[in-house]
């Protein structure tokens, strides 16, 4: 096992528990909070993988911006009210969980397990530094990058259009 493995185990347990929390909590605010925790542990997992720039972007983008927006909306709509009726659990539960577990088992045995027996190369820790990502982002991947920026612009315009009451 590699040296990062014990750290991985701890983080994996925390992230799975908080992911279950997202689904299981009745109150949307609690769901949002456990999702923040999940994103935070995912960022730490990225650090464990050596991808430091992406790990810190994960905290900045997801924990710092997206989840704050979620909390903002939940509070604006008062969805997290204390006197709200909890959602009903319905029969879909008894279908959804076995089917998902079956699919997961299928993927695990057919696609993931065979990788135990193939030769794998490991890249050094420096691949995740800004010095390594920056040149790649602005040379090889410059067109996808521009398209992503246009997409974000469209997203801004679209959300303003949706939020405006009258034109």
């Amino acid at each position: 096992m590699e040296s990062g493995f014990p750290v991985f185990v701890v983080l994996a347990v925390v992230s799975i528990l908080s992911a279950i929390g997202v689904v299981a909590f009745k109150s949307p605010v609690r769901s949002a909070l456990s999702l923040v925790l999940a994103f935070f542990t995912l960022a730490l997992l990225y650090f464990n993988l050596g991808a430091q720039l992406l790990g810190i972007s994960q905290i900045m983008v997801y924990a710092g911006a997206i989840m704050v927006l979620f909390l903002f909306v939940i509070m604006m709509l008062k969805l997290g009210g204390h006197d709200k009726q909890p959602e009903k659990t319905d029969r879909r539960l008894y279908v959804a969980i076995p089917v998902s577990i079956a699919i997961a088992a299928l993927v695990l045995t057919k696609f993931i397990e065979p990788m135990l027996h193939v030769p794998v190369s490991v890249i050094g820790d420096e691949y995740g530094t800004p010095q390594a990502i920056g040149p790649a982002l602005f040379t090889t991947y410059v067109w996808p990058f521009e398209i992503a920026s246009v997409l974000l612009l469209v997203g801004i315009v679209g959300s303003i259009m949706l939020a405006k009451k009258r034109f």
Binding site: L53, I59, A63, G64, A65
Partner: peptide
């Protein structure tokens, strides 16, 4: 003394809102 020190500052200060 990490390579991404200034981004760390921005990321952590964005958690202050919680």
């Amino acid at each position: 003394d990490i390579e991404i020190g200034l981004m760390f500052v921005l990321a952590i200060s964005s958690l202050g809102v919680y």
